[in-house]
Structure formats: C-alpha cells, structure tokens
C-alpha cells in the first residue's frame, strides 16, 4: 500500500524520526515514513518490533492482563521508541528523538493514532498455503534475502519454478522446505 497517507500524518510531528505500520500477525511492513537523515531499514525494524509486539501480546495474555490498546515504550540511548497496537491487525511504531519531552510525544502520538486508524483498511483473513508462508518467512529473516529462493532450492531439490506456485507443493516437499528453513535460520521449529 502507498505510504502517502502516513507521510501526510507524520511529516509535521516534531522530533519524529521514523514511523511505520506493521501488519500482524506476519510482521510485514504496511507503510512507513522517515526523515531524510534517518538511516533505518524500516522493513527490518517493522519485522523485529512486530515480533516484539506478538511476544508481548502472548506474555500479557498469559498474565491475563492483555488489552487491545497495549503500548510498549522503549527508551534507548538516542531514541524514544513507542509501539502502539491500533487493532488486532496493525501496530503503529514511532521513533522520536530521545530529547523530545514525553508529554509532547504522547500528545502527538494520540493524534497520530486517531488519524492513522481512520485510514486503515479492514482486514479479511485468508488462510494462505503453508509453503507460501514458509517462503515469506525466509525472505524476511534469512540472510541474503535476494538469493533465498535459489539457496532453498539447492537445499531441498525443489526447483525455483515450483516455488512460484507454493500451493502446489506436496506434503513431502513442505516437510523438506520446513526442515531446510529451520536449518538456515537455526530454529528448532517455525512458528508461523
């Protein structure tokens, strides 16, 4: 989706360096904005913080204290990072300069949340094939993402052409794909 709507919302917010919207539960970047000086790999940041929000949700649910308006604030050496759940499908992430007064940040964040929420689409969940989800997971997290289809092809014996239609992969191919993905990422299992 175009990030233009976020550009309009974010560009006038003082001390804001980066804003991004992460689609859940896949932690994919939905829209982003950042200042010219910012050197953030927003896709990567959106994915990592999406994971953080997901873990946070699960932790809070385990504590039976979860609410849908959960917010995470992180104070690092030079940044103030705030992750705000907009709804079950989207999370707004903002990175402010560390020196920004907290009261001002909260005020602007509240306004941003209202404006962003009003423009988000309604999400209908479609269960995608497991093969497709494994490949997307790899493209997001594996080293050298541009080469990952070729790498996984060599490791599994499944041709890149077969990966073009992941819904047609056999159950046995999915097992091979999942095993290879776990090996590449150093994971015992994939939590998709």
């Amino acid at each position: 989706m175009s990030s233009q709507f976020l550009d309009r919302i974010a560009e006038d917010v003082p001390s804001l360096r980066t804003a991004f919207i992460t689609a859940m539960p896949d932690c994919l970047l939905f829209a982003s904005w950042q200042t010219k000086e910012s050197e953030v790999d927003v896709e990567e940041v959106a994915a990592y913080f999406g994971d953080l929000v997901r873990s946070n949700r699960q932790g809070l649910k385990a504590l039976k204290t979860w609410s849908s308006e959960m917010q995470v604030t992180i104070e690092s050496a030079d940044s103030l990072i705030i992750l705000r759940e907009l709804n079950a499908d989207f999370v707004l992430g903002t990175i402010f300069e560390r020196s920004a007064p907290l009261g001002m940040v909260r005020l602007h964040l509240k306004r941003m949340v209202e404006r962003v929420t009003a423009q988000l689409p309604k999400v209908t969940i479609a269960e995608r094939p497991r093969g497709a989800r494994i490949l997307e997971f790899l493209e997001r997290y594996a080293p050298d993402p541009h080469a990952i289809l070729l790498r996984i092809s060599l490791r599994t014996g499944i041709t890149p052409e077969e990966f073009q239609t992941p819904e047609k992969l056999s159950a046995e191919q999915i097992v091979r794909l999942e095993e290879a993905a776990c090996k590449l990422l150093g994971l015992k299992q994939l939590n998709l």
């Binding site: 070729l150 060599l154 041709t159």
Partner: peptide
C-alpha cells in the same frame, strides 16, 4: 541433481 545446476551456477556468479 543436474536440474539444479543453473541454480548452483547462479549462486556462484552471485
């Protein structure tokens, strides 16, 4: 796995 030779060659080119 001769069918995957072009894949291996592409990666070494990469």
């Amino acid at each position: 796995q001769p069918a995957l030779l072009p894949v291996a060659e592409t990666l070494f080119r990469e």
